[in-house]
Each structure stands twice: as C-alpha cells, then as structure tokens.
Amino acid sequence: MSRYLRLFLKNSALRLSSEMAYKWNFWVKTFAVALGDLIGPVLILLIYSTTSGIQGWSLAEFILFQGTLTLVIGFSHVFFTLIGVQTIDMVRHGKFDAALIKPYNPLLYLSFTSFDWDGLAEIFVGLALLTWSFITLGIVIFSWNFVLYLFLIALALVLFYSLVVMISSLAFLLVKSWALFALFFRTIDFARYPLDIYGQGLRVLFTFFLPLGVASFYPAKALLDGIELTIVLYLMLSMSIFLAISLVLWHFAMKKYSSAGG
C-alpha cells in the first residue's frame, strides 16, 4: 500500500506543478468551479428571500443539504473524475497500453494517479456552506447522528466511485463515452433538491435504483432528524452492489481490451 501512497503523492505533486505552468489560468478555473457550486445555493437564497420556501426545510437546512452534496461532489471531483477523464482519453487515442506496461493493477494505478487540483475549490465551498449552516442551526458534532452523517457521506463516495468506474469501463465498449459522462453530471442535479419534493416514482428511483439520495438527502436527514437503521442498512447493501457491478464491468472491459488490443 505504501508504494501506492508514494505514487499518489508524487503524481499529485507533478499535477500541481503542471497546473502551475499556467498559474493564472488555474486560479481562473478555480474561481469558475467555486461560482458553479454557488448556483444551487444562490437559487435557494433567492427563493427563500421572496417566498417562505418549501415544506420541511428552512433556509439553513437547505444550505446544509446543498453543502453536503457540494462536499461529496467536491471529493469526487478531486479524487475520481480524472479516472474517467484519463481512461476515456486514453482509450480514444489508443494510449491505454501505457497504463498496462506499468507494474500495477491498472484500475488501482489510475485511481492513485488522478488527483485533480481543480476540484479543491469545490471542497472548500462545501465546507463553507456547511460551516455556516452548522453554526446557524447549532448542530452538535459529538453525536451519534453526526457519525451517521459522515458514514453516509462515505457511502455516497463509494457510489460516485462506482459510477465513475462504470463509465470508464463503458469507454472500452462504446465509443461515445463523453456524452455518458455529461449525462452522469446532469443526473446528479436531481440530488440538488430534497427527495421529498419529487413524485413517488422519482423518490423510489433515487432511493432504491440509483440511490443518489445518499449524496445529500439521507445524510442531511440523518443529521437533522435521524433516519431509520433499515434505510442505512439498505444503502450499505446498495453501495456494495454498485461497487461490485462496477468492478465486474471493469474486469470485463479489461478482458475485452486485452483480447482486442485496443
């Protein structure tokens, strides 16, 4: 494991100096990312400043909700997004061989060499939104609910990792995987608002089949009201299944690649 850690550190350092080759552009990109994360909260702020909002959610609770999602997206951006970007790019240009002549498991190698500095701003925006809402709501950090909250965020990261691995695997099977990647980001938009605003069908979809609720709704619920253990158990099961499917798919993609040779 320590060799993967060293690989990760060295690669991330190089990525940083690579970004710093265009220092000015890096800061502009970071600014754009931060602005993008404020779209949701600004919309909510505007709605809450002209109306009394939506049932069951105060402004601060809503910001907590969106801050949680921003944090999850931020971590995924920093740690996972480049896995997909690199894979799709390599497959498209016939360069995936380069990953296979390294003495590592290719998925682990990609996972440890994909730190994206662009996304750090997203984590900071998420943390800022959470700090504000935690203070406003007076949330106690030393509580069972908070532990559950962190646990659900971890589960959400498992989900996002699995989805990125799935999309990366599909890059070997389909040619047009950029569009899929874009669609993935669009679908995440559903998680920007509480599941209880949607109709029954969508609520079931985002709880049981594509459990995006784990990235915002259920952690926020757990922290604010507490949730039933059965849901937590279900989400754990669901994430394990997602992870398993993604790994099987990746394995299948590798097999296909090594028998077709790119």
Binding site: R3, K10, N11, L14, S18, A21, Y22, P103
Partner: peptide, 17 residues
Amino acid sequence: WWDLPAIDTFYMNREVY
C-alpha cells in the same frame, strides 16, 4: 508530461518502478 520538464517524468518513473 507535456507541460513539465522531462526530469519530472523521470522522477515519476522512479516512484513507479
């Protein structure tokens, strides 16, 4: 690495291997 001096790629390979 396109935007970096080749020496950086060499250092990366030191870790890789």
